[in-house]
């Protein structure tokens, strides 16, 4: 199914190119989340539930506004509320809509051992193909943003699809459609970057001199970006990583070491074969048996 979209630029655990003749000729997509415009209404969460037919378990109050308390296989997006006391002593409520960032260089896809369980489309969307998912959870270890969640019931991983089904037919993601303040907008990555710059100019003119765009280069940029009032301190926003990148451990685990190790295994076997052909087996002959017999007889 996914390959027939003919725009698959990356496919997990696959060594040859996938059908990708249909490029994103009108530009890659991006969702821009302007945290400075967000009022924390959770309409995006509801829209996500509705469009994707997801219902999380009703949990218990944990003493803060985050509800549910964390992302799960049933909650692909989540508003996270951070209370920040700025140096002036004022309280700032920093609300961030958390979910998959759709990295240009996705750590989940790099870590996945199952061919085609994770794909990236030409438009930049990173999508899980659960029919190929084997439930190992390696994507969870690969993700720099702690996003994928594995279902306890079906042992498949789930995350935001950036409404790839809607985007494929020219609609914007459900959360974008539902946002009442225009804090979430969707378009080409170029347009969204430009729009963000306009917002940042506006914010700076109003005293937020550290306002900026969160489009981390460490993962090749992301297809979900944030406008932050404090772009110099992303950690304030419920732990948004400062310099996310694919962990070097994952890089080493999934990088050039794998073909090298496979080669070394084959070489070990090949050396054995060549030794057998070149030097030959070590056999016991009659002389050895005689020597043993003599010694056995000698032994008192």
């Amino acid at each position: 199914m996914p390959l027939q979209s003919l725009d698959v630029v990356r496919r997990s655990a696959t060594t040859l190119p996938s059908p990708e003749v249909r490029g994103a000729h009108t530009g890659q997509v991006a969702k821009l989340i302007d945290t400075t415009k967000c009022i924390g209404c959770k309409a995006c969460q509801v829209a996500c539930m509705e469009w994707n037919d997801l219902r999380d378990e009703i949990g218990t109050c944990t003493g803060h506004y985050d509800n549910p308390a964390d992302l799960s296989e049933h909650s692909w997006t989540l508003m996270r509320y951070a209370e920040y006391e700025n140096p002036k002593g004022d309280l700032e409520w920093l609300i961030r809509k958390d979910g998959c960032m759709h990295c240009e260089d996705p750590g989940c896809l790099k870590a996945c051992p199952s061919p085609g369980a994770i794909v990236q489309y030409a438009n930049g969307i990173v999508d899980f193909q659960e029919e190929n998912c084997i439930g190992c959870g390696y994507c969870i270890a690969g993700c720099p943003f702690d996003i994928p969640r594995i279902s306890k019931k079906d042992k498949k991983v789930y995350k935001c699809t950036l409404c790839s089904d809607r985007v494929a037919v020219g609609l914007e993601p459900a959360c974008v459609k539902a946002c009442p303040t225009g804090a979430i907008v969707f378009g080409t990555k170029e347009d969204m970057t430009q729009h963000a710059q306009e917002r940042i100019v506006d914010l700076k003119s109003r005293g937020f001199d550290q306002a900026g765009l969160y489009d981390p280069a460490g993962v090749g940029g992301t297809h979900v970006m944030y406008v932050l009032h404090h772009a110099d301190q992303p950690l304030l926003y419920s732990g948004l990583p400062e310099k996310p990148r694919i962990s070097p451990t994952v890089g080493l685990w999934k990088g050039v070491t794998k073909p090298l190790a496979l080669f070394a295994i084959a070489a070990t076997a090949a050396i054995g074969f060549l030794h057998y052909i070149g030097i030959g087996p070590n056999e016991t002959d009659e002389q050895d048996e005689d020597a043993a017999r003599r010694e056995q007889e000698k032994t008192p």
Partner: peptide
């Protein structure tokens, strides 16, 4: 094993 094998190796 044979005694010769044990003796040799």
């Amino acid at each position: 094993v044979t005694p010769g094998w044990a003796w040799k190796h």
